[in-house]
Amino acid sequence: MAGVNALRWLILTRHGESTANLAYEALLGTDAEEYDVPERDADVPLSDTGRAQAANLGRWLAALPEDERPTTVVASPFVRALDTAGIALAQTPYAAPQAPDGLRLRVDERLRDREQGVLSGLTELGVRRRFPDEADRLRRLGKFYYRPPGGESWADLALRLRSFYRDLEAQAPGGRVLVVAHDVIVVMTRYLVEGLSEREVLEIEKTRVANASVSRWRLDGSGPRAVCYNDSTHLTDVDDSPSKAPR
């Protein structure tokens, strides 16, 4: 994929556990129609566990061999991703402000979570009850191409990610890049980097990307080589069971 193959390393992580993840888990098995989350999606913060996960992620980054350490870090503008990146980088000896020439965190709105439009904040039951026609359209079109009113399909997300990675190629050719974002960004990056089909990516998506997990690809001129996907072994001392919540 143009925009990725010009890099040397690509590392993606999902943000740490958020308060919205906890709110979602609290509703499992109930007949609730919407999540009890007071903040807008962009402002949802990390939970205490999420902050501990971010710190562990930072210690993992600090232990990377020098030739695998990120030279560029880009995050989603959403608070949970920004805070994950900030906490993680604070654990490394090569990131600002500790190092005079250390890494600077960049923000790119193309890494934001998928926009749900009128379905934002609703549970699956809430969608079926309040928007039965949309629930039927989702079943007919499938998750990849379904676009909720005012929201995005997965295919829409692929378009903005292609744009992001093309720009990244121009800005950091040969670089080692860390992206801190959301589960769907991790999944769709794999779709783009590995040239997957709709069926393949939706099968992969059935296993939720764990909070603060790591996915890595090495690019050596012969195409991307997956080193790990959805790896959370660096979180063994944190209560880090993969969140089922998409946010």
Results as ranks from 00 to 15, higher is better:
7 L>F: 00
95 A>T: 07
9 W>Y: 10
80 R>M: 04
194 E>H: 09
174 G>D: 02
186 V>A: 10
27 L>M: 11
176 R>W: 04
225 R>A: 12
225 R>M: 09
176 R>S: 04
106 R>L: 15
70 P>M: 02
32 A>R: 15
92 T>I: 05
7 L>Y: 01
124 E>K: 15
168 L>F: 07
200 E>D: 11
127 V>R: 04
2 A>D: 15
78 F>I: 05
96 A>S: 13
242 P>L: 08
108 D>F: 00
102 G>K: 04
189 T>N: 08
166 R>E: 15
159 L>T: 14
74 V>E: 04
117 G>N: 00
128 R>S: 11
218 R>Y: 14
148 P>A: 06
97 P>N: 03
155 A>P: 00
208 R>F: 12
96 A>T: 12
113 D>T: 08
68 E>R: 10
194 E>S: 08
1 M>V: 12
225 R>K: 12
40 R>P: 08
245 A>V: 06
3 G>W: 01
101 D>Q: 11
132 P>F: 01
94 Y>G: 01
78 F>Q: 12
180 V>D: 11
69 R>A: 00
239 D>P: 12
175 G>R: 03
89 L>F: 05
105 L>F: 03
191 Y>K: 08
192 L>G: 09
196 L>T: 10
133 D>V: 06
20 A>F: 07
20 A>D: 10
95 A>E: 06
47 S>H: 10
185 I>L: 04
148 P>D: 08
224 P>W: 08
49 T>I: 15
160 R>I: 09
194 E>G: 05
237 D>P: 07
160 R>S: 06
64 L>Q: 05
156 D>V: 07
224 P>G: 11
178 L>R: 02
68 E>Y: 02
53 Q>S: 02
218 R>P: 03
113 D>C: 03
171 Q>K: 12
66 E>R: 07
163 S>I: 10
103 L>V: 01
221 G>K: 06
94 Y>Q: 05
50 G>S: 04
206 K>L: 13
46 L>N: 11
188 M>E: 12
76 S>C: 05
239 D>F: 09
218 R>A: 14
246 P>H: 06
243 S>L: 04
167 D>N: 13
247 R>C: 13
96 A>P: 08
98 Q>H: 14
208 R>T: 13
39 E>H: 10
91 Q>C: 09
36 D>A: 15
15 H>S: 03
196 L>F: 07
202 L>F: 11
80 R>D: 04
242 P>A: 07
106 R>Q: 14
118 V>M: 03
20 A>G: 07
37 V>P: 13
25 E>S: 13
55 A>V: 08
246 P>D: 02
166 R>V: 12
142 G>H: 05
69 R>F: 00
104 R>S: 12
14 R>A: 00
56 N>S: 13
90 A>C: 02
167 D>P: 13
129 R>T: 00
202 L>G: 10
29 G>A: 05
142 G>V: 07
